[in-house]
């Protein structure tokens, strides 16, 4: 799939747009190779490798979507595997740290704080998901494209068939205002 893109910039652009078919094919393209490579290098079970692969793929997409990777100096596979190495490193470090914390009987407060934060984030996600469901289209898509996918107002105008970017900017503000009003009800 990556090989069929002669132009790396185009590949990056299509990933940044969140082209799902492309993303799914890229996911499939490197998976088997990764599982074999990770199994040999880290001596881990396929399930662990698959979890790491998922996480690495998600991070790769976020990095491209959020503009942290703006050009491909190597192949996409190189980036993906490099991210996966970091994910493995974090997993090993976390495992080690957790054991140390328990041994020292410390970090309980920190754990409580994490649980609290996690709960708040979950609550926030749930509330906003419901609000988005209530507000409906086109607000839901406009807000998703702008705030999650980081589309420019020009790109949203093209995707949504709006006359120009001023319509998008207006729509975005109106939708946010409506969302807040719904939240306050």
């Amino acid at each position: 799939m990556e090989n069929s893109y002669s132009n790396k910039t185009k590949l990056l652009e299509d990933i940044q747009k969140g082209d799902e078919q492309l993303l799914e094919r890229l996911y499939a393209q490197y998976r088997s190779e990764f599982i074999i490579w990770a199994g040999r290098r880290y001596n881990c079970a396929d399930d662990t490798s698959a979890e790491v692969y998922q996480r690495a793929f998600i991070i790769l997409y976020y990095n491209i979507k959020d503009g942290k990777i703006t050009e491909l100096k190597s192949s996409l596979k190189t980036y993906l595997f490099a991210i996966a190495k970091n994910v493995f490193r974090e997993r090993f470090r976390d495992k080690h740290n957790k054991t140390s914390d328990i041994e020292q009987g410390a970090a309980i407060q920190e754990v409580d704080y994490d649980i609290d934060e996690t709960y708040k984030k979950e609550h926030q996600k749930k509330v906003v998901a419901r609000l988005l469901q209530r507000i409906g289209e086109p607000c839901k898509t406009v807000l998703h494209l702008f705030f999650f996918k980081n589309y420019s107002v020009e790109a949203i105008a093209i995707t949504m068939g709006y006359k120009d970017e001023r319509v998008v900017s207006k729509r975005k503000s109106v939708c946010l205002k409506q969302l807040r009003e719904l939240m306050k009800k």
């Binding site: 984030k121 926030q124 996600k125 509330v127 906003v128 998901a129 609000l131 988005l132 807000l143 998703h144 705030f147 999650f148 996918k149 946010l176 969302l179 807040r180 939240m183 306050k184």
Partner: peptide, 13 residues
């Protein structure tokens, strides 16, 4: 409020 909403939109995405 808008911070909560925008963060939430990103989290849902």
């Amino acid at each position: 409020d808008y911070h909560f909403l925008i963060e939430g939109i990103v989290a849902v995405g």
